[in-house]
Design a protein around this nucleic acid. Structure first.
Length: 404
RNA sequence: CGGAGUGUAGUGAAUCGGUAUCACGCUUCGUUCGGGACGAAGAGACACCGGGUUCAAUUCCCGGCACUCCGACCA
């Protein structure tokens, strides 16, 4: 992609109103646009990051045997009445009336997925069922804030699983927990699984995935040595205590919640009539759980945690482009073509502006590898990574070898 | 929803009872070309909306709305 043709250029100044680091950098670097408080467009660069994140999640979800679907965002009141959540969750739901019918914009999909399942579930042989989708969530947050971290409309991956027994649910539940940690690792985030209350979803103990971050909205108690942690609302440990797992020191830290998993049990199945016939032919309630990852929030969390004073620093796996090619002379065109020919995902800064300005934009946009073609590099290409100052002169073949 | 702050070109700021100034960005031309270059010439604003006071309001007053921050709630 030629930068000159990219929609959504960088800007020199920080947007005045924004305080949150993620909002400042993502807006300035041209990844997002704000429509209103808590409502953002993903511009081409931001969209690419979102795609990368989703692809990683998709890969890992599929490995657990889950299947991808896509559910509607506008729901009839009656489905929400089945669980009484039309009333109970009305503060977070966008509810509206049109021609005497009442609807809600989806803030989650338990009711919908259970409706889909009950139409098709009859035998234990149909279980387990594991369905997920990537979709928009609407939540009437009393106050949208922290840029992309607390929006009223945001993207989320949600997975729902149904099982014939508590044992089978638990097995899959903790399997997913493991997979979540792995997903966040692949996304470049160190997430801790902490115990938490379930809000409008359940009275059971649930688990959150928290990433330590200075500007996080949440606060957790965690062990500095091992992966132990507890949500502050539920914490039995306190700052300064010994970790019950390894004896390390407990610390308190701000954090961003990037995912959560809820073992909902049979309560929803009871309310919505999710039954199956077991081996003896007896009617049984299905065991149910749901699992979410805030994909747009992950973008914000990455910026909060990894960026530096010059701009964003994307991990390789989610970077909008693999390399940022800076052209300072005519030879750059040839290098661009060659990279493209070798299927390298390259953003080519072909603008007729000063070198310094291009470098500043590289640092701001945050693609992990910067390549420069200039008179100084002669027939070679300069390789520099976003983190660190080291530069190397490589031939095009060496560059291609390193990239593949 | 309570509290605080802010609304002036695309962005950031200045002004002040007499109809708006600057910087960056943008356009054109020329010179530059390795860390946000330089010169010249341009374009771009119903001063958030509505009402009031006044001969005159961007400026003062009232009422909205929007955005940001703190709190309550939450992925």
């Amino acid at each position: 992609m030629r930068y000159s043709e990219l929609f959504g250029k960088t800007s020199r100044d920080f947007p005045k109103e924004e305080v949150a680091k993620n909002a400042k950098l993502l807006l300035r670097a041209g990844f997002i646009d704000k429509l209103m408080a808590g409502s953002y467009t993903l511009l081409p660069l931001g969209f690419r990051v979102k795609e990368k994140i989703e692809n990683i999640i998709r890969e890992e979800m599929d490995k657990t045997g889950a299947e991808e679907i896509l559910m509607p965002l506008m729901h009839p009141k009656q489905i929400w009445n089945e669980t009484k959540r039309w009333e109970y969750a009305k503060d977070v739901m966008y509810q509206f009336k049109k021609d005497d019918k009442e609807y809600a914009l989806s803030f989650t999909h338990e009711e919908v997925v259970l409706d889909i399942v009950r139409k098709r579930l009859s035998s234990y042989k149909d279980l387990p069922i594991k369905l997920y989708h990537f979709s928009t969530k609407f939540r009437n947050e009393l106050r949208a804030k922290s840029g992309i971290l607390r929006a009223r409309e945001f993207l989320m991956k949600d997975l729902y699983s149904l099982h014939a027994s508590k044992e089978d649910l638990d097995k899959y539940y903790f399997k997913v927990a493991e997979v979540y940690i792995k997903i966040f690792e692949r996304l470049g985030l160190k997430a801790r699984m902490v115990e938490a209350p379930g809000g409008v979803f359940t009275e059971n103990i649930t688990h959150e995935f928290q990433v330590l971050a200075e500007n996080g909205e949440d606060s957790i108690f965690y062990c500095e040595k091992c992966d132990f942690g507890q949500n502050k609302e539920i914490a039995k440990v306190k700052k300064g205590d010994k970790c019950p797992k390894c004896g390390g020191l407990i610390k308190e830290g701000r954090s961003i919640e990037v995912g959560n998993i809820f073992p909902l049990g049979t309560i929803y199945s009871e309310k919505m009539g999710i039954y199956f016939a077991d081996k003896k032919g007896e009617k049984k309630l299905a065991w149910f759980a749901c699992y979410g990852i805030g994909t747009t929030r992950v973008i914000g969390a990455l910026v909060e945690v990894l960026s530096d004073e010059k701009g964003i620093v994307w991990p390789k796996e989610v970077s909008p482009y693999e390399v940022h090619l800076v052209g300072l002379n005519h030879k750059a065109e040839g290098v661009y073509e060659k990279l493209k020919g070798n299927k390298v995902d390259v953003l080519f800064d072909d603008r007729d502006i000063s070198a310094g300005e291009k470098f500043a934009d590289c640092d701001l946009i945050g693609i992990p590898i910067r390549l420069i073609v200039s008179d100084n590099t002669q027939d070679k290409i300069e390789w520099k990574e976003r983190i660190g100052e080291k530069t190397e002169l490589l031939t095009i073949d060496e560059v291609l070898t390193r990239l593949h």
